[in-house]
Measured scan of single mutants.
Amino acid sequence: KITVTFNGEEKARRYYKKMQKHNLKVEIRVENNQWVVHVE
């Protein structure tokens, strides 16, 4: 499981979509004013 933190929504969403293309289970959320993407 990987957790990647971004300081911008745009970058986070781009990464999220990229990971989805690989058929990975991805989850995006905001934690402590940071955009966090969890990849299983």
Score class of each variant (00 low, 15 high):
residue 25 K to D: 05
residue 4 V to Q: 05
residue 30 V to P: 06
residue 20 Q to H: 05
residue 38 H to R: 09
residue 33 N to Y: 06
residue 40 E to A: 08
residue 6 F to T: 01
residue 10 E to F: 08
residue 34 Q to Y: 11
residue 2 I to E: 04
residue 19 M to G: 02
residue 39 V to R: 01
residue 9 E to S: 05
residue 8 G to T: 15
residue 23 N to L: 06
residue 27 E to L: 06
residue 11 K to H: 14
residue 40 E to W: 15
residue 12 A to D: 02
residue 39 V to H: 04
residue 31 E to N: 05
residue 19 M to P: 01
residue 30 V to M: 14
residue 37 V to F: 02
residue 8 G to D: 15
residue 23 N to G: 15
residue 36 V to D: 01
residue 1 K to E: 07
residue 15 Y to I: 02
residue 6 F to G: 01
residue 26 V to F: 02
residue 21 K to G: 11
residue 1 K to V: 13
residue 12 A to H: 03
residue 27 E to P: 00
residue 16 Y to V: 11
residue 18 K to H: 13
residue 5 T to I: 14
residue 4 V to S: 03
residue 10 E to Y: 09
residue 5 T to E: 05
residue 9 E to K: 09
residue 18 K to S: 10
residue 23 N to I: 05
residue 37 V to R: 00
residue 26 V to S: 03
residue 17 K to L: 14
residue 28 I to P: 00
residue 21 K to W: 08
residue 28 I to M: 08
residue 34 Q to W: 07
residue 38 H to W: 09
residue 39 V to N: 00
residue 39 V to K: 01
residue 17 K to G: 05
residue 37 V to L: 03
residue 25 K to T: 08
residue 18 K to F: 14
residue 3 T to K: 08
residue 23 N to F: 13
residue 27 E to A: 07
residue 33 N to D: 11
residue 5 T to C: 12
residue 22 H to D: 07
residue 20 Q to F: 05
residue 33 N to H: 09
residue 34 Q to N: 08
residue 13 R to P: 03
residue 11 K to R: 12
residue 15 Y to C: 05
residue 8 G to M: 14
residue 38 H to T: 15
residue 2 I to V: 11
residue 5 T to H: 11
residue 38 H to S: 15
residue 32 N to P: 03
residue 27 E to R: 04
residue 23 N to W: 09
residue 35 W to M: 01
residue 14 R to V: 09
residue 23 N to H: 12
residue 17 K to E: 15
residue 16 Y to C: 12
residue 13 R to E: 06
residue 24 L to R: 07
residue 36 V to H: 05
residue 31 E to C: 08
residue 28 I to R: 00
residue 14 R to Y: 08
residue 23 N to D: 07
residue 14 R to W: 11
residue 19 M to L: 09
residue 35 W to I: 03
residue 35 W to S: 00
residue 11 K to T: 14
residue 1 K to P: 10
residue 19 M to F: 04
residue 36 V to E: 04
residue 28 I to F: 04
residue 16 Y to H: 04
residue 32 N to G: 14
residue 7 N to Y: 10
residue 14 R to Q: 14
residue 10 E to T: 08
residue 22 H to Q: 14
residue 30 V to N: 11
residue 25 K to L: 09
residue 3 T to F: 07
residue 15 Y to S: 01
residue 18 K to I: 12
residue 11 K to Y: 13
residue 9 E to V: 08
residue 26 V to A: 07
residue 29 R to W: 12
residue 33 N to I: 03
residue 13 R to M: 14
residue 5 T to F: 13
residue 1 K to H: 13
residue 34 Q to A: 08
residue 17 K to N: 13
residue 29 R to V: 12
residue 26 V to N: 00
residue 1 K to I: 12
residue 5 T to V: 14
residue 23 N to K: 09
residue 23 N to T: 04
residue 6 F to Q: 01
residue 32 N to S: 06
residue 1 K to N: 11
residue 34 Q to K: 14
residue 34 Q to D: 03
residue 18 K to T: 09
residue 28 I to Y: 01
residue 11 K to D: 15
residue 22 H to R: 13
residue 7 N to C: 10
residue 20 Q to S: 08
residue 35 W to C: 00
residue 6 F to Y: 02
residue 1 K to T: 14
residue 32 N to R: 05
residue 29 R to H: 12
residue 6 F to D: 01
residue 16 Y to W: 06
residue 37 V to H: 00
residue 33 N to L: 06
residue 16 Y to L: 11
residue 21 K to M: 13
